[in-house]
């Protein structure tokens, strides 16, 4: 009986954890090609403890240029600019009209803007997002999605920058240590450093283990200046 209760609690914990993971404000595309101009989409999973999301402000990451926000369910946007480079967008705010605020936290929202990404492959960019919610009685509440990896608090939305690549074989020199290869190579068929190989796909991992002369790439990933072959 005790075991049943414990396992039920464990399952409930896992479900709660996965639900909160899905509920974060997150980038719709977890990986993007460095240096490209793309449409960044951020998904807003929930409001603040039952209150509908009323406004969102996104701090534009350093190195990102050519920002042009798109209108959304929140209506028109407002921008702030860099004090020195007055053409450089520093933040974008989407805010609803009060009449459009919903009585409860029922909706999923997507906000988007066009931008040119930094030309820095094998790094990640983080979008710090400030969320304002509005209850039915007009009370405002706030949530800060600004924590970087290793920091306490609600996590900022992240996107991993991968190098431009084509289907087939691609050769890269790694600019810095990459301890977790899954961040950048989840969609690659296989990654090689010398005779060591990595794949996110478990079936391919089994084939790597079964091939004579091939080792699984070590758990600490690849190091700066390593030369790697990647097949997409």
């Amino acid at each position: 009986m005790k075991n049943k209760v414990l396992s039920s609690l464990a399952i409930a914990g896992v479900l709660a954890a996965s639900a909160s993971a899905q509920a974060h404000i997150a980038a719709v595309a977890p990986t993007v090609v460095a240096g490209k101009t793309i449409v960044v989409e951020l998904g807003v999973g929930h409001g603040c403890e039952g209150s509908d999301t009323y406004a969102l402000t996104v701090d534009i990451p350093q190195g990102m240029t050519s920002v042009r926000p798109m209108e959304s369910d929140f209506g028109k946007t407002s921008l702030t600019y860099d004090a020195v480079d007055t053409a450089l967008v520093k933040s974008v705010t989407w805010q609803k009209d009060e009449a459009d605020a919903l009585p409860k936290d029922t909706n999923y929202y997507k906000i988007a803007f066009r931008a040119k990404l930094p030309a820095a492959p094998f790094t990640s960019i983080y979008y710090k997002i400030h969320q304002v919610c509005r209850a039915a009685d007009a009370t405002l509440s706030y949530a800060e999605w600004v924590a970087l990896p290793g920091e306490m608090g609600e996590p900022a939305a992240a996107q991993a920058l991968v190098p431009d690549h084509l289907p087939g074989w691609n050769k890269f020199t790694v600019p810095a240590d990459i301890p977790d290869l899954s961040i950048y190579f989840k969609d690659a068929l296989i990654v090689w450093r010398g005779s060591d190989a990595y794949s996110f796909n478990d079936a391919t991992v089994d084939l790597i283990k079964g091939t004579q002369g091939v080792n699984l790439l070590s758990a600490d990933g690849v190091k700066a200046n390593d030369e790697i072959w990647v097949r997409y």
Binding site: I190, G210, T211, V214, W229
Partner: peptide, 18 residues
């Protein structure tokens, strides 16, 4: 697949295996 070992198209250019 699955043959138990990596197919040749998964072996990078220039790598010779026993």
């Amino acid at each position: 697949p699955p043959s138990g070992t990596l197919p040749c198209e998964y072996i990078p250019p220039g790598l010779a295996l026993p």
